[in-house]
Design a protein around this nucleic acid. Structure first.
Lengths: 198, 198
DNA sequence: CCATTGTCGGAACTGTCAGTTTCGTCAAAT
DNA sequence: ATTTGACGAAACTGACAGTTCCGACAATGG
């Protein structure tokens, strides 16, 4: 997930030469996310990111293998502190809160996620990274659902993987295809549909 | 959906000059679909389609406004006769059959749909066309679900739009992101989840 | 038969963009 | 002071979408 420096100093010789400027990394990621979020539809070029960040293209390609990798890391960094995993003891409450938080974050960073998806569809490294990112998010949701299932709030025979596909599927579908909103109301309704008492 | 001829003959003067060669249209669409289905991951270029179809690029751009439009029409044409809408009188049976058929078609033309999605994410006309295509598919499913709802096989308060988002969402999610299979078993399980007795 | 209208292939062209390379500069560590 | 490596500037390559120009050819109307 983090950038892959091509010149890794050997363990024996700790370091020589000028050190990497951390401000560069941050500037690139921040401006990449900004540009992506702003320029709805139009693709964001590496040149544009470089110029906006006040950084040379060379430097970007020193630390990231491709444009997709930059976008991916920008998304991951933004998404990191967006959603907390609730644990109130009631599945319906936990799920609705989680979904509402997630949807809000997705609505805010929608253009960014669309741009990332576009990249993932034409570049293997971005696709791989995105699958890892998505898997991490799934793990959070799975834990939440399993707690509910263990408490008997969800039938034991419910296939959680399928349920998660329905949830995240709906989210991406609305984001990418239908372009319909992901409101708190949708979170509530979806929660009702999933936890519908048997 | 159909190509938009830039030189529409006026109604008063029926036609003059050489007529359009229908074989060209078919060759372009067929080879576009083939290339798209085959070249998993790598984008298909207009030059490649033109060469494979034995047609000049000029001719393609005479009849289609953009690459996305070509891909879209190729997909639509392939999808036209793939799925029939069952009406057996039992929602569970109808839905499972419909989903199994749909999933089989999607599995077969997965690369094609991914290519189309990539195009739709960076081009407005392709995105617009895809939304229309998707809406048409939704209408079929909606009719199927409504019949079941009227028979009381689905609670009256079930939001069909949300249900369809869950179904098509799962499909696209697996196709685009998870890259997990869409088997007949998934169709059965999803049907159970949707028609779960209250 | 012949002028007109429009289709088609070939090929050159423009513009954009990802990714590479070269060069010169500057900072940190020995 | 010398080495190692980070950085900017800028030129470059190659791919590709979309455009334009040309010349050939086919259908139609007179």
């Amino acid at each position: 997930m983090s950038p892959d420096p091509p010149h890794v100093p050997a363990a024996s010789r700790p370091h020589t030469g000028r050190r990497r400027n951390p401000a560069v990394r941050q500037a690139v990621l921040d401006r990449a996310a900004d540009l992506l979020a702003r320029s709805e539809g139009i693709a964001v070029s590496i040149d544009a990111i470089a110029q906006a960040a006040g950084v040379s293209k060379h430097t970007i390609y020193r630390w990231w293998p491709s444009k997709g990798a930059v976008l991916l890391e920008a998304v991951v960094e933004r998404a990191q502190e967006e959603v907390t995993i609730p644990d109130t003891g009631a599945l319906a409450t936990d799920l609705e809160t989680f979904l509402a938080d997630t949807f809000r974050a997705v609505e805010r960073e929608g253009a960014l996620l669309r741009g990332l998806m576009a990249e993932a569809l034409r570049e293997t490294t971005a696709a791989q990274g995105m699958r890892e990112f998505v898997a991490a998010r799934r793990n959070e949701l799975r834990a939440l659902l399993m707690r509910g299932q263990e408490r008997g709030e969800l039938p034991a025979e419910t296939d959680l993987e399928l349920t998660m596909d329905q949830i995240y599927g709906l989210m991406w579908y609305r984001l990418l295809i239908a372009q319909s909103p992901l409101t708190a109301g949708v979170a509530a309704e979806l929660t009702r549909a999933i936890t519908r008492p048997a």
